[in-house]
Nucleic acid binder design. Structure first.
Lengths: 351, 351
DNA sequence: ACGGGCCGCGCAAACCTTTGAACAAAACTC
DNA sequence: GAGTTTTGTTCAAAGGTTTGCGCGGCCCGT
């Protein structure tokens, strides 16, 4: 009566090359070669051992394999703040594509908390083949450790300030494109809702936008700090709504879709219409699913997440096999999604 | 001119017990014991070796340690659909709390795609100490593998149908509580927007709600399938708006906050007010951050995510050390968040 | 002065897989 | 039929860590 209902507990002691070799009556190395498809082993033996392995539920011990100097198949992952809906989408794509390449993701860090010492221990202790960083807020620690220990590192959706390998959307171009469209549609008073001041993504988007405006002889009527959160966008919207009507911008660029949604919510709650026909035009950047649908139907630059992830893994794996490869920056052009949240030039209205 | 600017590449060959022992002039085992704080080693030697290890950037090789039969410190993770904003929050909490306990998360699967054979290989090959499953849609494969190989498994925010260990919010009670509040506030025509038909979470919430209504002699005026997505909630809202006014419900329970937000968006876009003073009352379940803020200010049951994760890890670690522990179901009561999206009994209005 | 006990440390095995080298046997060549 | 290649398999080592056991040296009691 010690354990009430301990269900079928085979607890077979884990199939190993040794156990398989014993039941097959051959040596350990024969089993190993048979399972890896070595042609030196006769087809008959190979088939027999494969069947045995499948039946025993054998899975090669990746740890022992890695110990031999091989690769661990582990990618260390540093995740950005999960409340930004862009990151969950990125994560899902990353998991899927990594699995397709036989890689697994080991989460080193998530969110905005500080990176503890344990992160370094994990990075080295589990012998990750490389690291992917999607958050640039506090990467210094991981970046340093990777550099010291020759662990390849690739930033996805971020660009290192002075060096490093990264793949990102062409944020400056996207910002400029949005500015050009808004200008062509006749807007004249522009506002920006910025994100984290210390992330390259936000900086580049805002800079591209402002530069394009300046080229056309325009400036920013006002600028708000949205902190990359939906709540920040909401707060910015309230402040815009509180302006006297003649001081309000007629076009607002929120540098991330999350902020754009909060912004639209705030404007509408203040009875200020947002859209292509009347009121204020709002554009965003990211292309998160929720923003593309009603009630937002946001005009935004869609970051090509699948391609971003694909190129990121390409770059990382290339550096796993060739550690001396020079730093590389890959920039992918985003696609404009013309929604109903902004007045656009006539040429686009049909699309 | 082969590699343009290959920065400082120390590529020191990875500090190991052997390398440390050589520089320290002692044996490997002494270094091992010194670093683990074994009192048999003299304090002086311990300090000296610790300093050496820190300087060399030594990190114990977890793989080799695990090979000895110890624990890997790895928790396999099966994630639910990331587009539901509840999961990113759960993930962030999970990463933080796991790190606090010295554990790392290895992502086995994310999203709704089917579970491939590689998942099994990873689960066994990396010798995960246990698994946490937050998605019950396709767990059969992982559940079976864990059961066969005596790998502890805990479901978080899910309940297994017939057996297994799980920790979840008291979904039925929460649903019933919401029903009771809506009844007490005088609502009479009720609707439900359901989620995935095959997840225990959605089922229990809906069942609790309907049961409590039935006890009071009421039924459901209508029911919609929201598919656990925001878009599904939006679609349900449009269908409600399309009903003739006298056929519309005066209270709607969306079994997840994401659907509730879509629902509110749709009702408002159809000029049907939602809120505590007029129009339709909407309540949700989860307590995701966005839903608690304007413009939703949703009345919802907040799932206690930190406690959920804490108990989940408790249960998992208990089963790592004691594999024969019987199945256990832990249910945590959610907290009512009285927002402005629903008319509530007067006793709550002051709160 | 000598033996017992303790203190600090080293030896070696074990964990599991991969792989180059070696080895035996069978199938060729002439 | 002897030499040579091919074929099928085994041996052994390596990789980094943990740990039971053993071994010297020192202190203390007598």
């Amino acid at each position: 009566m010690d354990h009430p209902v301990s269900r079928s507990r085979p607890a077979r002691p884990r199939a190993t090359l040794l156990s398989l070799s014993q039941t097959a009556g051959v040596s350990i190395s024969t089993v190993s070669r048979a399972l890896r498809g070595d042609t030196r082993i006769s087809p008959a033996t190979r088939r027999r051992i494969s069947a045995l392995a499948a039946e025993a539920g054998y899975a090669p011990d990746t740890l022992a394999r890695t110990l031999l100097g091989g690769r661990s198949g582990l990618i260390g992952l540093v995740l950005g703040p999960m409340r930004n809906p862009f990151y969950p989408a990125l994560l899902e794509e990353l998991v899927a594509q990594a699995a397709d390449r036989g890689l697994r993701l080991l989460i080193l860090h998530a969110g905005e908390g500080s990176m503890e010492e344990r992160t370094a221990q994990a990075l080295l202790g589990y012998r990750v083949d490389g690291c992917i960083v999607t958050s640039a807020v506090l990467p210094s620690r991981v970046t340093a450790i990777c550099a010291e220990n020759a662990v390849p590192l690739v930033m996805v959706n971020r660009v290192a300030r002075d060096h490093g390998t990264a793949v990102s959307c062409d944020n400056a171009e996207g910002g400029a494109r949005l500015a050009g469209l808004l200008l062509a549609a006749g807007h004249r008073r522009f506002a920006v809702v910025g994100g984290h001041a210390d992330t390259s993504t936000s900086q580049d988007r805002e800079r591209g936008f402002a530069t394009r405006l300046a080229e056309a002889g325009h400036g920013l009527a006002c600028r708000f700090d949205g902190g990359s959160t939906r709540e920040g966008g909401w707060a910015a919207g309230l402040r815009i709504a509180a302006l006297p009507p003649e001081a309000r911008p007629d076009a607002v660029f929120a540098v991330s879709d999350g902020m754009a949604m909060g912004l639209i919510d705030a404007l509408r709650s203040a009875a200020i219409p947002v859209g292509m026909t009347e009121g204020i035009s709002v554009v965003g950047f990211d292309g998160v699913a929720t923003a593309l649908h009603p009630p937002y139907e946001l005009t935004t630059i869609v970051v090509p997440v699948p391609a971003l992830v694909r190129r990121g893994l390409d770059l990382l794996l290339a550096r796993v096999t060739e550690p001396d490869a020079p730093d590389e920056l890959v920039t992918l052009r985003g696609e404009l999604h013309p929604g109903r949240s902004a007045r656009l030039p006539a040429m686009l209205e049909g699309a």
